[in-house]
């Protein structure tokens, strides 16, 4: 995440916590944000690629984010009902297994988002990444077999792929994991 985005995000969180979106609070939040980002520069990603904002591309990304959000909320509900049923059944068929998933995503941020999302989704909890960041390992319960567990993770990944910025993401980013 680049510096301006990070700082404004911190300002919004500050205003949310105060429960008052007054301008002076946002200003204080911005100041705190600048301070925090200065104190912890590790969170800042590669510098913002200063391109002319492409309206159509931003629109596409916005739609992709919304699609991801809708998908996520639906799956979160399914996941909870599923695990609740497993917890309450007298003889649950957990069928636990550990699967590896070859990854198409490359950027660090998107890999983080993928790991977070599958942990809150039906059947899978992220466990690790291979050292080359090309493979994700996940623990699965309540799925038919390894193929089914893998397929559900690949489906999440396909929602994230359109959000990955294509040109610069191939080079490794400087931010620490």
């Amino acid at each position: 995440m680049n510096r301006p985005t990070l700082v404004s995000l911190l300002a919004v969180v500050w205003a949310l916590l105060l429960g008052d979106p007054a301008l002076r609070h946002l200003a204080v939040g911005l100041g705190l944000g600048v301070l925090i980002v200065r104190l912890f520069p590790g969170g800042v990603g590669p510098g913002a690629t200063l391109r002319r904002p492409d309206l159509r591309a931003s629109l596409r990304r916005g739609v992709a984010w919304l699609r991801l959000l809708g998908f996520f909320l639906r799956e979160l509900t399914v996941a909870n009902v599923q695990v609740a049923l497993l917890a309450l059944q007298s003889r649950p068929r957990l069928n636990p297994l550990i699967v590896e998933v070859p990854l198409r995503l490359r950027s660090e941020g998107m890999l983080t988002l993928l790991a977070f999302t599958i942990t809150l989704m039906p059947g899978t909890v992220a466990m690790g990444l291979s050292r080359d960041r090309r493979t994700l390992y996940a623990h699965a319960i309540g799925t038919a077999d390894a193929e089914a567990a893998r397929a559900s993770i690949v489906r999440v990944e396909s929602y994230l792929l359109p959000l990955e910025t294509p040109p610069s993401s191939l080079s490794p980013t400087g931010g620490p994991a």
Binding site: L94, N95, P96, L97, I98, V99, E100, M127, G128, Y137, H139, A140, I141, T143, D145, A146
Partner: peptide, 12 residues
């Protein structure tokens, strides 16, 4: 891990 469902594909 208890893996009745199959193999451990990580193996580490």
């Amino acid at each position: 891990p208890i893996l009745t469902g199959g193999v451990d594909e990580w193996g580490a």
